[in-house]
């Protein structure tokens, strides 16, 4: 047989065999068709179209016209909001995702270690997650108002500095991070479930070996939680890449410039510090009707999320311990 392959001669398939293979292929494709249809229609088509439109001038009214790399040059070199928005988005990805994971894990560990009344704490910490984003943001803008907010009143009475929060470019992102951490109840619940799944014998064995609480956390808890940490990191990155509602609402309400229907409003108040890439997609695509340039930003977002996801999955081998 080896000799036959080496000499290039192959046994010829009979017509019956070829027909059977064709039938198998059709059957397999038929079974796969829902996935193929869904992926083609809702993933590949919009993806390819978005990339294509990024090389066209398209206002939604007239047919797209090929313009080469003009949109890319405009967005990357001339559109003054792009780089600040990219920097802000990366800041939110790094800081908010990290903070949410750390706080969610600490809260989860704290709540399961509470002997009495843990359900009360679980409810208290989880409830903020259920608040609608717009309502939660409005509440935070009110609470953190530098002029009339109760938080600064308390800080003032304690003799502490009173930040400008959503009205100060230096504090607006930390204020949004605070809001994101306040709604960390989803991660807390997931971490609680994962923590309860860690085999008790591992802790007992480590304890017999003389491991203290820190070493038990590092060598037992963390490795067991690795898939969940990976899940939290990747879904967090994707959520931050789509971060739109909270910074938009906070910026507009704090600025006082709500704007009327159709009016372009200052993006990213104060001083562009809360501007994110998804806001640019809206600004370019639906306020300036420059859909080609909006697609450039959408493609950048897509590539960035792919890079982050690939990095996290390769470096951490996170999902279900793949690569271990």
């Amino acid at each position: 047989m080896k000799g036959a392959v080496a000499s290039g001669t192959r046994p010829r398939a009979t017509p019956e065999l070829r027909a059977r293979k064709r039938r198998e292929l059709v059957r397999n494709l038929a079974f796969l068709s829902p996935w193929l249809l869904g992926t083609g229609l809702f993933f590949l088509y919009p993806l390819v179209t978005t990339v294509w439109l990024s090389f066209t001038h398209y206002d939604g009214f007239t047919s797209p016209v090929w313009t080469g790399v003009d949109n890319w040059h405009y967005v990357l070199h001339e559109y003054s909001f792009f780089w600040p928005a990219l920097r802000n988005t990366l800041w939110f990805v790094v800081v908010i995702v990290s903070l949410r994971i750390v706080v969610g894990l600490v809260l989860g560990m704290t709540v399961i270690s509470v002997k009495r009344g843990s359900s009360v704490f679980r409810t208290l910490f989880y409830a903020p997650y259920l608040a609608p984003p717009v309502a939660a943001t409005l509440a935070f803008v009110f609470l953190l108002n530098p002029g009339t907010g109760p938080v600064n009143s308390v800080l003032g009475k304690l003799g502490l500095p009173q930040p400008g929060w959503f009205n100060d470019p230096a504090w607006s992102k930390p204020a949004l991070a605070l809001l994101a951490v306040w709604g960390v109840g989803d991660l807390m619940v997931i971490f609680m479930a994962a923590l309860l799944d860690v085999p008790r014998e591992l802790y007992e064995a480590a304890e017999l070996d003389g491991a203290g609480s820190l070493r038990r956390f590092r060598h037992v808890t963390l490795p067991t939680l690795r898939p969940i940490l990976g899940f939290a990191a990747i879904t967090g990155v994707i959520a931050m890449m789509q971060y739109y509602t909270e910074p938009l609402v906070a910026g507009q309400v704090a600025s006082g410039q709500i704007g009327g229907s159709g009016q372009q409003v200052e993006p990213g108040y104060p001083a562009g510090s809360t501007l994110t890439l998804p806001q640019l997609v809206y600004n370019l695509g639906f306020q300036r009707f420059d859909i080609g340039a909006a697609c450039v930003v959408a493609v950048v977002l897509f590539v960035l999320s792919m890079v982050f996801a690939a990095f996290l999955m390769r470096r951490g081998s996170v999902f279900l311990g793949v690569g271990e």
């Binding site: 809702f42 993933f43 919009p46 993806l47 179209t49 978005t50 439109l53 939604g60 009214f61 007239t62 047919s63 990747i234 994707i238 890449m241 789509q242 998804p278 997609v281 695509g285 859909i291 909006a294 697609c295 959408a298 493609v299 977002l301 897509f302 999320s305 792919m306 996801a309 690939a310 999955m313 999902f319």
Partner: peptide
């Protein structure tokens, strides 16, 4: 899985691209 990680963003792209001509 990697492709799925960008799925939500593709939905965003879809919203941008889902209107041709009139």
């Amino acid at each position: 899985r990697r492709l799925a990680a960008g799925g939500a963003l593709t939905a965003l792209a879809l919203s941008v691209t889902g209107c041709f001509g009139s």
